[in-house]
Design a protein around this nucleic acid. Structure first.
Ligand SMILES: [Mn+2]
Ligand SMILES: [Mn+2]
Ligand SMILES: [Zn+2]
Ligand SMILES: [Zn+2]
Lengths: 138, 138
DNA sequence: TAGCAAGATGCGAAAGCTTCTCAGTTGTCT
DNA sequence: AGACAACTGAGAAGCTTTCGCATCTTGCTA
């Protein structure tokens, strides 16, 4: 049950938290901004403040339930933490996002960090391009 | 002469543009925020508005003179466009930046984009970690 | 089950970065 | 030098995100 995840995070089970987690779970492969989540709540008739959406997303991030991404759109987007790290391919025309993992790249990154004496903590790799569909309707 | 670069960009040679370009040239391997550039101008006694700094940096970016980077600090940083692409290693403690290029990673990225039918346009790879100095004074 | 304290919420205000507006100024070309 | 488009500084405004606080809930205890 979802509620357990919230409890495990040391947070009280409240309606805003249940609804927001539900939206993220039902969003499939999408990457939603706080505003997206907020609008979805309004659509569903849930009267939850935008500040709460930001607060909850940040708390979920702290608890490892969601990941915050910084694509170059000016706002952060969130997705459920699948547990497995992955990087992103973003279409600059339609914003479609494709996820991928490349062991070779991961390995080279570790090597590079080590080579420069850095204790690696995280990394962000985003490839921007034009997807097949958008290239077709050029 | 610097002025030629400005002219080639189709821009008038003005004091703000000369000073800003000069600061970027003299900044070495640093990556400066608009605010950094603005403060440097003030220090040098140049009375140039912050809005102008932003405007000029954006114009220089459009002209391919500078590159804008989005590290996760909440503000953009700028550096002179060396002509050669490179990626970044950023210390999360002291913000030190190390630049690198890894042919293997570049190659894998192209392959991944192709594999997903994307016509690659750009990419951003930033590795976050703790540098040697910061690890020492832990 | 009623009561309580810690924790959460919604709202509006405010912060931080960046862009816009506009009246006045300056560079460029003749 | 003169004309005109381009540019500038200052402040207002825009956007995303966070804060402050009075009010309401949840989870626990008795
Ligand atoms: Mn993802
Ligand atoms: Mn660089
Ligand atoms: Zn597309
Ligand atoms: Zn450091």
């Amino acid at each position: 049950m979802d509620n357990q995840q919230i409890k495990d995070a040391g947070l009280k089970v409240t309606r805003p938290r249940e609804k927001i987690l539900g939206i993220l779970e039902r969003s499939g492969r999408r990457h939603l901004s706080a505003e997206d989540v907020y609008k979805e709540l309004l659509t569903n008739g849930d009267d939850i403040g935008l500040a709460t959406v930001y607060r909850v997303l940040t708390q979920f991030e702290g608890a490892g339930l969601v990941c915050r991404r910084h694509f170059e759109t000016g706002q952060s987007v969130f997705e459920l933490n699948s547990g497995d790290h992955h990087d992103h391919l973003v279409c600059v025309r339609c914003n479609r996002v494709v996820e991928f993992v490349d062991p070779m790249i991961e390995e080279r990154q570790s090597a590079i960090a080590a080579q420069h004496g850095f204790h690696i903590e995280d990394h962000s790799l985003v490839i921007y391009g034009v997807c097949t569909d958008c290239a077709a309707n050029a």
